[in-house]
Each structure stands twice: as C-alpha cells, then as structure tokens.
Design a protein around this nucleic acid. Sequence first.
DNA 1: CAGGGCACCT
DNA 2: AGGTGCC
Length: 781
Amino acid sequence: MALLHRLELGPTTKEYFHCLVHFPHRYSSTLISHIENYNNKKTTHITFTLFQMDKSEDEMEEDETEWKSSFVDSVPLSPAAAAAASGPNLNKKSVPTSAHRVILHFDLDCFYAQVEMIRNPALREVPLGIQQKYIIVTCNYVAREQGVTKLMSVTDAKEKCPQLVLVKGEDLTHYRDMSYKVTELLVSYCPLVERLGFDENFMDITKMVETRLAETPESKNLSFKGHVYNHFSAAVKASDHPRLALGSHIAAELREAIHSKLGLTGCAGIATNKLLAKLVSGTFKPNQQTTLLPENISDIIGCLSGLRKVPGVGHQTAKRLQALGLVSVKDLQLFPLNDLVREFGGPSAQRLKNLALGVDDSPVTPSGAPQSLSDEDSFKKMSSTKDVLEKIQELLSNLVERMHKDGRQPQTFRLTIRRYSATNKWFSRESRQSPIPTHIGQKITSDSSDDAVLQLVPLAMKLFHKMVDSSGSFHLTLINVCFSNLQTRGAAVSGKGSITSFFTHSTSPRKTQLFSTQSQDDSSQSGDSHCMDHQFSTHSGISQHASQKTVPTKTHSSDAALHGFKRKQSPVVVAVEDRQLQEVPCSTARSDSDETDNMVTHQLPPYVDPEVFKLLPEEIQKELLSPAYTNSLPSTSMSSDGVVDVSHIKNKSPQTIKDSQNILDMKEAANKSVPSDRPTTVNDQSPGGTSAFPGENVMEEGRLSFPESSDCVLPGNVDPEVFSELPPDVQRELLSEWKQQKPVLKTASSRKPGRCLMNKDRKAAGKGSQANNLLKYFKPS
DNA sequence: CAGGGCACCT
DNA sequence: AGGTGCC
C-alpha cells in the first residue's frame, strides 16, 4: 500500500508507526508530527490516510486530492461529514463558491495598556498593569518582561514586579471608543470587518486582493510582508501564493494605518480562513504579522498544545471532549465523527472536527453596531435592597447615557445578577427581561436621559424582585443591566436633529441585513464597492445610502457611529483622511520601502522560541533589531537624555495613579528601562527587544557574532536530533526545565515549545543555507 | 476562574 | 432564560 511505501522515511518514524498501531491514542499525534517533519507536503497525505484507516470504511472513498482540497481550502464539510449530516448521496461536493479567501486577523497588542499609554505617554516607559477589581487584565510589555501576565491577581503581579504601575480599567469607555475607531478604520477600506472582543478584528479582503491582482498582473517583485509561517525564504514562495502575498501587503498597510492614525500597534495574521488567520496572527507577538501558507496548515494545527487552544473549544467543550478520551488536536482529528455527533449533535460535531483540521468556512460577518449595550459591576457582597437600588441606578445612568449617544432606541431591558454560592460560585447567572415602554425608550434617545433613568429604575427593581426574595437574605456578587433589541427609528428631534437624522437615514435597513444570511454572497457582490465610493467622501450622512444595499455597515454604531459622524462634521480634516484611506489600499502604489516591516519579511528559524531571543545579550538583540520596524509615535514624553518626564502624569490623570510612591517607582523604573547607551531615537515599545526578529537580510551579512554563552533552545550538550526522538511529553518537560533555569522569563508559556518546536527544528535544520549563519547560534555548538 | 463586555445557539 | 464562547 502506498501508505507503507511512503513511510520509508527513517527508522524513527517506523518505530513510531509501531507505536501508532499498538497505542493509537498515545502515539498517533507524535507519529504524525514526525512524519510531517520529514517531508512537509507529501506526508500530509499520509497523515490523512492514516486517519482514514482509523475510521469506518464508509469514510474511505475519497482520494487524496479530495482530501487535500478539503483540508486546504475552506470547503464547508468534509465528505464524510456531509454524508453523515445530509444523507448518503452527495455527489462529490458542491465546489465552494469562495475557493480562495484571503482573511486577515488583527490583534492589537495589550490593548487596554496601549490605550492608557496613549492617554499618558509616561506610562510607556514603566511596567504598567490595567486593573479591574483585583485582577490585572492586561499589562504592557515592560511589565511582561518582569513576569506579569494577563489575568494575574494584583497580589501576584506586585510580587513579581513591585514597581508595577496600576491603572484602573473598569470603565471601558476609552477602550471601547478606541476599539471602534480601529474597526471603523478597517471598515473604511473594506466593509467585511468582524469584531472579536475589543481588540481583534477579522477582515475578508478577498475582493480587494483580486482587484489588486487584476490591476497589477505583472506580479513583479511579488513578496511577502512580514513573516511567513515556517518559511525562511519568503520571497521565493510568493509567486506560488500571490493572493496571500498581496494580503500580507494589505495587512501591513492596514497595520501602518492603524499606527499612524490611531497610534496603536498590533499583530496580523493572513490566511485562508478565520481560524487559521487567528491562529497564525499570534505566532510573532508584539507588533508583527505572519502569513500562513496552505502547505503549512498542518504545522500550525499540530503545534497547538491542546484542544483548548483551538478557538471555539472552550472549557466545557474541552471537558466533554476529554471525557471521550480526546486531549490533543490530533486526537480529535482521528476521532470518528459519528461518535462525535452522538455527543454534540450534527453541526457542532462537524464544526469541531473541522476546526481540528484547520477547516473553517464561517464567513467574516460584519459586526456593525453592537446588538446590545450593557453595563455591569461585580463586588464581594451585596445583600441589601437599598444597595441594589443604588447600584442599579448608577449602572443605568451610565448605560442610558451610552445608549443616548448611540442614538438607537432599546426595546428590551434585562437585569442580570450573580448570586454567591460556595459550590457554584463561578457560574450561575440569572436574568429577567422585559420590554421597554415606548415612552421610556423615547426619553433615552431624546435629551431627557435623566427622566429615562428614573423610569427605568423601578422597571429594573421589578425584575430584581422576580429573582430575589428581598424578605429573606441574599448575597449578590454581580449586577448587570442591558439594553437590547436596539431599534434605529429614533424619534424626530429638533435639537440634535443632525445626529438623529443621521442615524435615522442610514441605519434603518441595517439590522435586517446584518442578520439575514448575507454571508459570503454579499462579500462577492459588494466586492466592487469595497474600496471606494460607498464612503462619505462628501457631505452629509445621506451618502450612507450608497452603501446601503450591500453593506450593512455600521458607521453609525454606538461609538463608531459617533466617530463616523464626527468625521463628517469636520470635512476639512476628514476629506483628506478618507481619501487616503480609500485610495491607498486600492492602488498597489505606496512605497513601502522603509519604515514598514522591511526586515520582518523574513524570520528566525521557527523553532527558535521568541522568548529565547530576548534572552540574548542586549547588544546582539539591538544589532539584530537594527532595521526593525520603528514605530515612532507622535508624542513621546521622553526627554533627550532618556529620562521620562513624569510630571504630567499627575496633571493628566491624577486619580489613576494609586499614590505618590508609585510615581517615584515609575521614575526609577523608567531610568532602569532606558539604558544610558541607548540612542534616544530608539522608540520601541519593548525595551527588552522582543519587538522584532532578525531577517534573512541580516543573517546573510554574517557580521553577527554570538557569544558562546548565549542562550540556546537546547543546552549545548544536547543533540537536537536525538532530542527530537524523545516522546513529546518528555521533550516538553525537559524544555520547561531548561527554560526555568534561564534568567527571568516566566511570561508566556502559552506558546509551548515542546513538540512543536522540535518539529520545526527538524525542518529548519535541513532547510535553507542562508539561515544557517544564524541558525547555528541556536543549535548546540 | 478571575473582569467587563459582547455574540450565538438552544 | 440560560449556556457557552471569545477577548
């Protein structure tokens, strides 16, 4: 059989094959990984052949090309699944309408921290944590270097980093505002933007890519911007994947736009579907981008350390999968679909399995304006009705104000509580909702918000008493108020007429479009209007109508709406901005010669843990980073001697700084974090040097010398070839042991070195010659 | 899990 | 109305 023939890869593989046969659950993933090590593309087929053999016979009909296409492309269903779900028939499969999508995923770096650092630039130079209650929800990279991580308790964080400066982040207003500015900026290029949380956006730029492709058929120096996952020679491969290559250029331009217009840095992933774009966007962490080529899909999937790492698999799902004996992604790939259906039902089962294969046909659904607005607060204990009432009043007051700015009229109100419970503390929220009387709703959109609050409070209390018997004792830990079922038809009003009319005119058809199945069809239909005309290049909000047909745009969302409106209000500034926004992305022009990630085009050998890189001596890092992406923000509080001016911290936001001691700490930290020999012009966000990696161009110059003592992934006396033969869990243990011996580094263990790392090591070792210069410094001497 | 939002499915 | 997922 072809299978055995192709497995003539080496003794190690054969051993693992034995393991697979006898202990499929334990060793299958290992085998697959190692097979892929030897020969990337071809053995992917072997992998799937093995899958098939492991499964029931009816699933074995497809030939390899079928498999490959279902794997590489965004084909909705694997053949077997389609058969299971929709009946036995199904002649082959309906070929996908969107054969090759180009999907971007943007992920802003430590978003809340960035926003605060923009609001107060002095915070750039100090370890900064954003605090919500007793939790550090995120922190800047200065703090991360000192071991602070996301979602770490304040106590632990202070322990790790005594100089940590904390900023309260419970009020999300500024974050939300900035978040919508980002989304809006992206939407101004292409309407297919889907938000995920406040700091992530998906974007379907397929049409934009096709347009560019048509405009510049002479694929001249086609190359990739930024990293290419698991590839060194990015330029060579570009011609094989012109769309993804173009996508990487667009991503770079968009990132640059976000940076220049909003002052924010972030990562981007470029791939053929949302899942992969998201997975790949995080491979090079701060302020970089990575493209995933189809032939490397199995690599990035195989690198996931557990099922939990698959977006879409949460805790509950992971537990249920684990109950089925599935822990790794490959386990899920191998698991018979039928059994999966039994547990999760048809659609969910197929979706899970597809995710494990890197298949994701879900469209980029334009988010538009939020469908609900809510405000909540959590606390240790709330047990009196009076406190509840006051809290509700407070929450409602804020929420109504936000709702008012949004302009839409809520038709449903919901109150949610969380009760304290020793056993089930972390869960169990209850809620009651009721329609909002129209006369109250109108008061929200009109200017009399205070009245609205007064009327809503009793309504909320009524709902509260439906859940809580206030005659007895109760113990709440959270209260949430929420407006939903948001209606666009605002009452015609004189005073703010301009705003309301803007909303009224533009938004009425939106909601229906948002939820009607406008998926990929719309994307293809609306394609032509993507880059251009649908915009507000000229005067009033009427121009929205131009886009009304295909684009469920939300330029009129709560905060987004306001921003969009403001832009129109100041036509002088706006006209220029919008023109740039639209023209730049649509023409291939734009000299991206310097300043953009010129050097990031290439990457370190993928088995080199980024974490390791920053352990190198600083001089080395600096040299490696020399052509780096310089993100110079408009304003820096750094004086020429490298000392941070903290005086205006107090001026700008006195209440955010906990105490004066912190300010002193900040000064210390700032001086420490800015070595005297560092050129003042350098303005990188991460003084430790995690921001960029050496490119091939740097390596080729061969002028880099690493001291013997520079940290390696493996200790010098360990042969990587031998190491890679070890069982993955053993590898992981060893690696983590070695890692812990190194200086600081406690940060992201999320990107696990383990097997993934060694997989790539194998590939890298046999790969490009140019890379060897730098490569050897990461290998045992 | 935490925290403050959001969305989707049932 | 609740559950689950995402950040």
